[in-house]
């Protein structure tokens, strides 16, 4: 992957305004040499998918702490499939109960990073995943 810059869309999906995690991750990915597009708050699944396609990213990182993940995340994966863009990796960060993590991973989410995750792990996960693809 070293010959091509990794492009990541970091987004806040839903109405919750807790963007500390999203911004810290965005900054860490940037420091790791990736190109990061940060959407800001209050994005709908439609807006996320549209921005991801327009920006031609390989990874979408979504942060959500409001508990609306079960309603808002699956539509993102579903829409990517409809647009034949399932090669875009979707990762999630936030407060996500264990049972929901299993469900989301069965439904196309590559990984879920809960509180206490290290930004180093997130960087490595993205690099490894893209190399495997």
């Amino acid at each position: 992957m070293s010959d091509k810059l990794i492009r990541v869309l970091v987004g806040k999906i839903g109405l919750d305004g807790h963007d500390r995690g999203a911004k810290v991750v965005a900054q860490a990915l940037r420091d790791a040499g990736m190109e990061v597009i940060y959407t800001g708050l209050r994005q709908t699944p439609e807006q996320i998918v549209e921005a991801a396609l327009q920006e031609d990213v390989q990874v979408i990182g979504l942060s959500i702490l409001s508990g609306a993940h079960m309603q808002l995340i699956p539509p993102v994966v579903e829409m990517l499939r409809e647009k034949e863009s399932s090669d875009i990796i979707v990762i999630i960060g936030g407060i996500i109960p264990r049972d929901d993590i299993a469900y989301l991973k069965e439904h196309g989410v590559a990984e879920v990073f809960t509180p206490g995750s290290s930004t180093v792990d997130i960087v490595n996960f993205i690099r490894n995943k893209l190399e495997l693809n």
Partner: peptide, 22 residues
Amino acid sequence: DLPTQIGYDSDHPLARGEVGKV
């Protein structure tokens, strides 16, 4: 909940998934 905090009724499209959550 967040829709209330942002001035949306519970049936607003942006309230999807958020009603009664936080």
